[in-house]
Amino acid sequence: MKRIALVVGLLWSIGMSMTAALAAEGVSYEKAADMLYQVMSANREVYTRVVVQRLSVDEEILVASEHFEDDAGLPLPSQMFRFVAEAVLDNTENFSYSLLSLHPINKKNGPATDLERQGLEHVADNPGENFYGQEELGGERYFSAVYPDYAVVEACVQCHNNHKDSPRRDLSVGEVMGGVVIRFPMD
């Protein structure tokens, strides 16, 4: 019993000192990731509602399409999300993020690291929970956070259930479809 108390105490103090170390530099990685995620998801929501929903569904002016250039239409919200993520990488190496899934339409959006797989499984199995961890990639240590990505509207589900390349066709609205992974290099 004493030993358990000792171990718990030790772990607690290590955790506290790490948090303190992170806090000493300003915001903790976890908090920074949470804030970025808020911006991302709000952006996506606004694009979906104000641009895609209005122009392609409500007013039927433009189609929203995977091949938006050939179809002279709007990029899908998930595409828009990825374009922005790529544009961010052009501007900074201080963080990166991606929209991934355990059953993606395009294989390149499946988990590429062990942590991604672990995180995506965690958010799928534990709705409402995020996943935080550290991993080493290309010789550098990263703090990685995984946030659940839900099927918000029927359109998401429709497309994913009907796409010929989709490995899963039984999705329903409200279900976790994948996750957003946010990464910081830890100096």
Partner: peptide, 12 residues
């Protein structure tokens, strides 16, 4: 694209 591979998740 370079963009896609610059993401550290592609380190492998």
């Amino acid at each position: 694209s370079r963009k896609r591979f610059r993401n550290p998740r592609m380190a492998e």
